[in-house]
């Protein structure tokens, strides 16, 4: 497993506690750059003023910091472009009961 796969695997452990779906399947991660032991994450949340703002962004940082060889994780939140439901994976839609 290369470091990018490892990072995505780690991000999938960060679950939105309201929806019960991880941040990757929710489509919250806009960009993931890994270089020289440093990871830069550009991400969003499903709504501005999400009460889980600190929990989820902090969770992303802590999850990635656990990867061997990573010494710096920078998480940046953006509302531009805003999150849209089209960003969700099929698995996320299934969990939300969208196909029921």
């Amino acid at each position: 497993m290369d470091i990018l796969e490892l990072a995505i695997h780690q991000l999938k452990t960060v679950i939105d506690p309201e929806l019960g779906i991880n941040v990757v399947d929710l489509g919250l991660i806009y960009r993931l750059q890994i270089q020289d032991g440093q990871i830069d994450v550009l991400m969003t949340l499903t709504t501005p003023g999400c009460p889980l703002h600190d929990s989820i962004a902090g969770g992303v940082k802590r999850a990635l910091e656990q990867i061997d060889g990573i010494h710096d994780v920078r998480v940046q939140l953006t509302w531009n472009p805003p999150w849209t439901p089209e960003r969700m994976s099929e698995e996320a839609l299934r969990q939300l009961g969208y196909f029921a």
Partner: peptide, 19 residues
């Protein structure tokens, strides 16, 4: 209560969902 108890544990260990 979840925020108080589990917010700092997200990304480090399994935490319960709000449900």
């Amino acid at each position: 209560w979840w925020t108080h108890r589990y917010s700092e544990k997200v990304g480090q260990e399994n935490v319960p969902t709000l449900k």
